[in-house]
């Protein structure tokens, strides 16, 4: 486990970020720093704004107020395309490209966006696929894969962009129980190589194991932000206790 370390560089910083859909404020004056090699796990009740938070970090949603700073550079409409290349995201619903083989799913962005050679991209893809135990699926189409395999391919696809930070939005909640482990193992591997991650998950045991820091999001704000140990044992917060008791039962 990697504990919070103030010496490490801040990769990502949200400062007083506000996001509303019409009158519905979903992120209310949120601030958050993520340091290199940190693994931040977000949890909280449905509708609390977890997905929206990840999506704003990736520029999939525009913010109404505040700033997002990536490695010292404020994210703007202009540089978002560039910054996004360094931020990987894995969705609950995989979102693989249905008409492309796994191989093409993996290499399309590195080739078209990072301008890698096809051979180099394929070699790299093969390596990741080996690591995650699905190297025999390179020629398969998404509809030929199980949910767990799809999600691992989605993780590899994000990794192919050589991201600086990875965002996971409930990566296992669309999976059958027997497939959850495969995907969590894949994320564990990323943790071992020191990948910085922000993970939304309801797998509390997994969070306890990998998280360096836990955030509890509720009604548009970060209600609790604490190192993992403290989060589970030392925080006196009625709502958090209630949430944990429901989810741990």
């Amino acid at each position: 486990m990697i504990f919070m370390n103030d010496d490490k560089a801040v990769i990502l910083s949200l400062q007083h970020v506000t996001k509303a859909f019409g009158k519905n404020t979903v992120l209310d004056d949120m601030s958050l720093d993520v340091r290199e090699h940190e693994i931040v796990v977000l949890c909280g009740p449905s509708g609390g704004g977890k997905s929206t938070l990840l999506r704003t970090i990736n520029g999939l949603e525009k913010i109404n107020d505040g700033k997002i700073i990536y490695r010292g550079e404020q994210v703007t409409n202009k540089n978002i395309k560039n910054i996004r290349k360094h931020i990987g995201i894995v969705f609950q619903s995989f979102n693989l490209f249905d008409n492309l083989t796994v191989r093409d799913n993996l290499i399309i962005a590195p080739v078209k966006v990072l301008k890698k050679s096809k051979e180099e991209a394929i070699r790299q893809a093969q390596e990741f696929m080996d690591t995650f135990g699905i190297s025999d699926k390179m020629d398969a189409y998404p509809h030929q894969l199980s949910g767990g395999q799809k999600q691992r391919v989605a993780i590899v696809r994000a990794m192919m962009m050589e991201p600086d930070i990875m965002l996971f939005d409930e990566p296992t909640s669309a999976l059958d129980p027997e497939m959850i482990k495969e995907v969590l193992d894949a994320i564990r591997r990323l943790a071992q190589i020191g990948m910085t991650m922000i993970i939304v998950t309801h797998e509390i045991a997994f969070a306890k194991e990998v998280a360096s820091r836990m955030l509890f999001l509720e009604s548009a704000s970060i209600r609790v932000d604490a190192p993992t140990e403290e989060f589970f044992t030392g925080v006196q917060d009625e709502r958090l206790q209630k949430f944990l008791s429901v989810i741990l039962k």
Binding site: N58, L60, K81, N82, R84, K85, I87, G88, I89, F91, S93, F94, N95, L96, F97, D98, I108, A109, K112, V113, A154, R157, A158, M161
Partner: peptide, 17 residues
């Protein structure tokens, strides 16, 4: 489905591609 567009956007894939 919107998801494929989003995944593409998240990787900065150009719209024509």
């Amino acid at each position: 489905d919107k998801g494929q567009w989003e995944a593409a956007r998240a990787m900065s894939l150009p719209v024509p591609v």
